[in-house]
Write a protein that binds this DNA or RNA. Structure first.
Lengths: 335, 335
DNA sequence: GCTTGGCACTCCGCAGACCCGAGTGCCAGC
DNA sequence: GCTGGCACTCGGGTCTGCGGAGTGCCAAGC
């Protein structure tokens, strides 16, 4: 038996199954793909593929369906990420170019991604920890009430209100601005935190402000912010409602779970594919995740991607995820 | 026939149908509710109720199901919003009290509301238009690049980056701050916009900054921000997937649609109920909306509520929506 | 004039029987 | 190693029959 024909058969099975959502049989295969051999031959190949664990039959005398292992091989060796068409590229840029701020970039990306892939899209907000402090602003709302605004290189803005014991004069405030600005501005979060902590003992007012700033910087809640879109695409899952859609909807609610699913931000533009039970959640054994890191200057500060059924168009999806990540990264370069 | 027994029958039908999700027949009805009459009598009442359009049968010789009109009557006349239990009240406060900023309040409310009602919860961010300008801050990011931060009384912060033609000195910046601050601070959005427009002709730099500020103030995108949660509850819809869940998922994607569904913010704590086809979207003819306005000082600046099947526990849901709205309003009072 | 028990009727939903077609595995021949 | 042939399996669709829940109506009773 020819090894490469066997792989061609696997590829054909995956493609057909993805397209039709039905177990694919030997006859249909030779008809749709010019394999140059008879159904019987294909059947032999299929038997081997099944022995090796790449495909299964839902029941005796039914067609074959790829297993997770089959998809894995398909993704790793049988497919190349197909480049986006010029039209698609244009769509991406027109869609994203109007964004006014970071929030807008994220929400547009999520919508774009879900439309391109027709899957549920997830975009993580650029993580605090890797960005630098661009500016800290103190605004007096009342004599003893202060608004602390933290502006980061990623475009993120965090704000907190602080009550201070002693009423603040304009001069004191100006001083505080300089002191804090000198300590934090331009630093990576981690460094800024250390520098600020050094100021803590100075006096009660400074201490309370520094506390809240540090708090805002290390706040986990912020690290976990994500945007989700395209949940309407879940409707296309058709049946498997309870087994597939319900756990996914639950995962979507739990942003922490989603973040874990997305996994680590990957450097260098590589798109990660996690297929079915490879992931950490057994309820999601029939969903795959296609994700990649993004961020300014090829430094992955966050992750974006899609979540969908294992039965999905991997080449197309991977292409879309990669293209959007690249475009968003370039947007962040400019900012 | 006694008019009030007829209504009791309707109430019983609604309650049973909501509880069991199955058409309710005359026999089961007299067994579960001490109506003091025989099934035959109930059948007569049911026939009248059906003539009057309050209930229907899915098919001949099946039990009865409330119509939209039936639910309407039930909500308007046959039920009172039942107060929350002390335990529930405590749950609400512990859940909401840890909120650090407006975003947090909104996201917590949405989660709380979806958990209390086991429905899809929607919370609109406090609308820009009714709030006042608390502060405008200008931050020089680079000599010709400026970050404009707009802080509103609702706690909302909008930020934009502006490029200016002429490099800015510290003095010019300070001047700009005072001029703009004087024009905008403390004003309602609408007034601030007019006041700012008056400044526009002063010089090119001011003009470009004012433009971006005005833009941020009237930006519709901001008016439309909402948070959605509890979509996992859609899984409980069971069947009716295509007819009920799909359009709802689509509506949830389209935030504009959701806003329209929520309707106008209502003053005075009244909870609005929109049942099935009463709403503007025919695809959502089997979903109801329970919503109410909320905001500081009894002034409704935004709306929150839930979206669910017409077949829902109205008294309980209305109670939860009202309780959460009240609590959130009180939170905003303090801020 | 309502209420009630009785009764015939309707119709859904389920279970069983059946058949068809798609697909397989295996084998003998090329 | 490929191919055609053949017997076998099994899911899914259709048809049928049946039981049960529920109705509508009627005549009798309070």
């Amino acid at each position: 038996m020819q090894e490469d024909r066997k792989l061609a058969v696997l590829r054909a099975i995956v493609e057909d199954y993805v397209a039709t959502e039905e177990p694919v049989g030997s006859k249909a295969l030779v008809e749709r793909h010019r394999l140059g051999v008879s159904p019987a031959t294909v059947r032999n190949d299929m038997a081997t593929l099944e022995d090796e664990g790449y495909i299964t039959q839902p029941h005796t005398s039914a067609g074959r369906v790829p297993t997770d292992k089959g998809y894995r091989l398909f993704v790793d060796r049988l497919t190349t990420v197909k480049p986006m068409s010029p039209a698609e590229k244009r769509a991406i840029s027109t869609f994203l170019d109007g964004a006014v701020d970071l929030d807008d970039v994220v929400s547009r990306s999520v919508r774009l991604l879900s439309q391109l892939t027709r899957q549920v899209a997830v975009v993580q907000y650029p993580t605090l920890s890797r960005s630098t402090v661009r500016h800290v602003e103190l605004v007096a709302l009342a004599p003893t009430r202060l608004l602390v605004v933290l502006i980061l290189s990623s475009g993120r803005v965090e704000q907190r209100v602080v009550e201070v014991a002693v009423p603040l004069t304009d001069e004191v405030l100006a001083d505080l601005r300089t002191v804090i600005g000198r300590a934090a501005a331009g630093q990576v979060i981690a460094e800024a935190v250390t520098a600020l902590r050094d100021l803590e003992s100075t006096d009660p007012t400074t201490t309370v402000i520094v506390d809240v700033l540090v708090d805002a910087m290390v706040d986990h809640r912020s690290d976990e912010r994500i945007a989700v879109g395209g949940t309407a695409n879940l409707a296309r899952y058709g049946d498997h409602f309870d087994s597939a859609v319900r756990p996914l909807l639950e995962a979507i609610e739990e942003h922490v779970v989603l973040l874990k699913l997305l996994g680590e931000a990957t450097e260098g533009g590589a798109v990660t594919v996690r297929i079915g039970a490879e992931g950490p959640y057994e309820e999601l054994s029939s969903t795959s995740v296609v994700a990649t890191g993004y961020g300014p200057h090829d430094e992955a500060v966050a992750t974006l991607g899609i979540v969908g059924p294992t039965r999905m168009d991997y080449p197309g999806t991977m292409a879309a995820v990669r293209a959007v990540a690249r475009y968003v990264s370039r947007l962040l370069d400019e900012a």
